[in-house]
Structure formats: C-alpha cells, structure tokens
Design a protein around this nucleic acid. Structure first.
Lengths: 206, 206
DNA sequence: CTAATTTTTAAACGCTTGTTTAATTTTTTT
DNA sequence: AAAAAAATTAAACAAGCGTTTAAAAATTAG
C-alpha cells in the first residue's frame, strides 16, 4: 500500500485545478474524476469524500501561498527591502497563479474551519520574528508607527486585490487581458513606491 | 397585474440576502423560497428561473454598489477631496454591507456576462468627466501622472480588500471580529493619508 | 353574486448530486 | 502458478436539485 500512488496524486492535482477554477460548490465529484481521467468511485476510494478532498487541497494551496511570503519574512533583509521584495514576489507569484488569491478568499469566507491555523500560519509568523523587527524599526523612528495587522493589510491589499478583482476592473473599464497585464506591470512599481514611502517616511530606497 | 407585488419584492429581497451570503452555486431555489416564507414554485412564477432571478439580483447589487461611488465622482469637489471622500464613503458603505464586495468579486469571476457593462458603468464613468479632471490636475502638476485604471485600482484595493479578506486576515492573525473592527477604523485614515500623499505629492490636505 | 383571472400550493417531473456496493481487473505475495 | 490483496470499474442508491404541472385558494371583473 504505497502512500502517494500515482493515481492518488493525479486525483489531488486534478481536484486542485477544478476546485481553484470553480470553487467547492461550483464543481462535482464526477468532474474531478473526469479531469483526472478516471472513475468517480476512485475519488472516494483514495479520499473518503468530496469535503475531505477539498480540505486537503485547500490546506496545500495555503501552504504554497504562504511559502513565498515566509521566505521573505524569515530572510535577513532590512525591513525596507523586505517590503519591496515581498511585493515583487507576490506580483510574480500571482502573475503565475492569479486564481489562487480569489480561490482562498472566496472559500475561506464560506467555509467555517480556520485553515490558516491548521497550517500553523500564526506560529510561522512568530518564528519569523517580523513583529520584533517592526517594533525595533518603529522605535528607531525608521518606520511609521502602525500595527502589524495594518501593515500586512496594506501589503496584501495592494498585491492581491489587482489579481482578485481583475474580472471586475476589466469589466468596469472595458479593457482586455493584454491591456490589463500592461497596467499590472506599472502598478507593481507604483505600489512599491507608495508603500515604502508611506511606511518608511525617511527612507531613500525610492 | 401589479408590477411590484409585495410577494415579488419579498422574493427578490430574500434572494438578494441568500445569494450574497452563499453565492449562486451555494444555495437552492427552495432555500430562497423558504427565506421569503413561501412556496418554491412562486420563485419561478415571478422570475422564470434561478439564473434569471440571479441576474436581476446581481444587477441591482451592482447599481447599489456603484451609486455611492458615482455620487462622489460626479460632485464638484476638487480631486484631492474626491479621493478622501471616496475612501470615507467606501469604508462607510462596506462597513454596513461588508459581504457585497466579496459577493460581486466572487460571482463576477465565475459568471461570464459583463454585468458592469449592462448597468452602464463605463458610460457613467465618462459622464462623471473624472478622466478629464484627472488629466487637468496631472498637467498642472498637482497629481502624480499615472493612468486612471491604476488610480481606481489603488483606491479600490485599499478600500475593498480589508472587507473582502476579513475572514482570511482574522484567520492569519487569530483575532476576533471586535478586534478587526478596531483595526479597520484606524486603517481608513492610514489609507487616506497614504493615497493622498502618493497621488498628490504637493498637497497639504494631510 | 357569479364568472374570469390571478395568485398560491402540493406534488411530481426528470436529472444530477455525493456516496456506496459488489463485481472485475490488476498487482503483489507466497 | 495459485492465492491474497489492492486497484479500478460499472451500476446503483437515496437525496436533492431546478423546474413544471395541475389543482386549490384568493382576488378581481362584470
């Protein structure tokens, strides 16, 4: 009884694709099976139910999503650089997987479980000692004195929203995919300038 | 044959509540009927199908959502004030109806129809002559020279995301509703300061 | 008041859903 | 090669879905 049968993995990958594209309620078990190229019963043979499979998928998506985030937070860079690199990495990541941000936000607002706690997000946050680094920079007067929650909110708002709201924004302005991508490239730099300028009023990084 | 029977309105209002809370795929016709306190068949008697009812609901939600936005854009205020008032109004509106932003973004990314065009959003944008006002301010050197699409993106990112991503952010930081609300109140002012400072580098409004 | 019309209901329609069963094929073990 | 175990399948299950029908109740018209 192998742990990661090729079949098991195929189902998980197919499920990830389908769940991200259509959401938990927007797809069926049979659709996932078909995407994996196999019988419906196999989905419940390897993962006992659609819900259980979904929990596994969303946990691994969160992990993937959080990975690049912590890579930056745990690094030895000064805070100003961390902010810049974080934004750059987020735009890179979401440029490649634009549906992930919407997927997580959509499903997390419907599902009741605290998946981020399951993945140990809070603990990883403390491990990264980012709170201490912020406090230090604020006491030195290098950084604007605002709460870490607000800092994360500013960072995530300006990195995630442009990808989440893409269909809405394109609809509002009647612009196509190509055109929107062009705006996104410029937007990344605007966001970097704006945030560094706001969070580090005396910085020369921009 | 009255147009807006009390029954018809009750169904539409119930449907709006249910659709916003659970999304199109997350709820059933029977659920909507129950919420309205009546038989399932009545839903299809007044609105011919679940999809048709949904289209009507989402169009009216968009209208409500866009209303306060254009109220500001069409006003005679100088641009700097428009930005500040827009942010304040958005925080007020989303504070009262926090689920609307997520609802629109979720459903617009799944549905294929361009609902914003149906509502005449683009035209209203031109009517408001905001593009001309921006161009003028930029030529006078009062405003940073960035595209209107990016300006709207900055505004919406920082107003909508904190409400859309609330479940995720609370999950990440392990904080409760009360606590998050406190952060939101502060956040509004941070966003106003940051955006005005960035968009109008020479302004004295902050 | 009666007849016509509109509104509301209960029940059923065929279809799809998530899940399970039992049989079959494939693989592993001995 | 035979027996045991695991993987895969087709078929079925009950439950729920969106929608329709046909009859009952309520309202309006003449």
């Amino acid at each position: 009884m192998e742990k990661d049968t090729s079949t098991e993995l195929k189902i998980k990958e197919a499920a990830t694709r389908v769940f991200i594209a259509k959401g938990f309620n927007g797809c069926t078990s049979r659709e996932i099976a078909k995407e994996a190229g196999m019988n419906v019963a196999l989905v419940n043979y390897y993962f006992k139910s659609k819900s259980h499979l979904f929990e596994i998928v969303i946990a691994s998506v969160i992990e993937k999503f959080a990975e690049s985030l912590f890579e930056v937070f745990k690094s030895e860079l000064p805070l100003v650089s961390k902010v810049r690199v974080f934004i750059e990495k987020e735009y890179d990541f979401l440029g490649k997987h634009p549906e992930i941000a919407s997927f997580l936000i959509n499903e997390l607002s419907k599902q009741e479980a605290n998946f981020f706690q399951c993945v140990g997000f809070s603990d990883a946050m403390k491990d990264a000692k980012i709170e201490a680094q912020v406090k230090e920079a604020q006491e030195k007067g290098e950084m604007r004195k605002i709460n870490l929650v607000n800092i994360i909110l500013l960072l995530m708002s300006n990195t995630n929203f442009p990808f989440i709201a893409r269909p809405m924004i394109q609809s509002i302005h009647s612009i196509n995919d190509e055109n929107y991508k062009t705006h996104l490239i410029l937007h990344k730099q605007y966001v970097i300038d704006m945030l560094i300028n706001y969070l580090f009023p005396n910085s020369k990084e921009f």
